[in-house]
Simulated scan of single mutants.
Amino acid sequence: MSNTPLDPSTMSRRRQILETYKMTREVDPAARWWMLGAFLLFGGLGFVLFEFVLPGDGTFKLVLSIIGTLLLGLLGVMIVFGRRAQRAAFRRLDGQLGAAARALGMLRRGWVVEEVVGFTKQQDMVHRVVGPPGIVLVAEGNAARVKQLLISEHKKHERVAGEYPVHEVVVGKDEGQVPLTKLVRHVQKLGRQVKPAEITEIRQRLRALDAQRPKAPIPRGPVPTSMKGQRGNLRGR
């Protein structure tokens, strides 16, 4: 049996869901019980709701109530499954080199993620996100070393950003840092400080800065299946 990681892009939708469920159960064994509880809760509420809302009586009403119960129960399962799968994917990534960059890959519409715009020989790194908040510099690595790296990158970006804001985020579990599991949501909550047209202008200003620096590669590999699925959820699909 091969241990080669599966690439979600080569799988059918059904296979992606199956592999995501397997991965989630490995990391979070309680997930199936949460999903069962969600089915019973949503389904039970749905049955009561349809019993009171639907007019009439008899077999037809019972059939509609059962169908509505199953649909709402499945909706509850998918909501809980999505949340637990996302947490499991983050937990698998946590501590890996380039984990923050892979997590930021969940940002899509209206966001531009550029990996490793700054780095040290010890593999501390700073990634850049350009989006509604302006420029967001996301650092990961040793707390002491990455602080100096982040200060340096902030100064470089501030010189070309002009009036546009430059934010700093350090990924980690210490005080003042943002856990990997909350990184995407934290970046999204920085607010809307620039217009879509201004994002293009910011990127043009950054080209000159990027042309002067080398790019550092980070370990590649298939994005965890659940992470790939969560991208669609964040886009509102």
Rank of each mutant, 00 (worst) to 15 (best):
G162S: 09
H157K: 03
L149I: 01
G191M: 05
V178L: 01
A197T: 03
E158H: 08
P133D: 01
A144I: 14
E175W: 07
I135V: 15
A161C: 07
V171Y: 12
H154F: 10
S152Y: 05
P133Y: 03
E158G: 02
K182Y: 04
E198A: 07
Q188E: 12
P132A: 10
Q148R: 08
L149V: 00
P179Y: 05
K155E: 12
H186Y: 15
Y164G: 02
K156E: 09
H154D: 04
H167L: 09
G191V: 09
V187G: 06
K189V: 00
P179V: 03
L149M: 03
H157S: 07
T200K: 08
L137G: 07
H167A: 13
V166G: 04
E198R: 10
V187D: 10
A144V: 15
H154T: 13
K155S: 11
Y164R: 13
K189T: 04
V130P: 02
Y164E: 10
E158C: 08
V194Y: 12
V187E: 08
H157N: 14
G162N: 09
T200V: 11
K156P: 00
P132F: 05
P133F: 06
L190R: 11
P179L: 04
A144K: 14
L190E: 05
H154C: 01
R185P: 00
T200S: 08
P179C: 06
T181P: 00
R185M: 09
K173Y: 06
V146R: 11
E140A: 11
V171F: 11
G191A: 10
V169I: 15
K195E: 13
H186F: 15
A144S: 15
P165G: 05
P165R: 06
G134T: 11
R159V: 09
A161G: 06
R185T: 12
L180P: 11
E175H: 11
E140G: 07
G191C: 06
L183A: 09
L149D: 00
V170P: 01
H154E: 12
H186P: 04
K156Y: 01
E163I: 10
G131D: 02
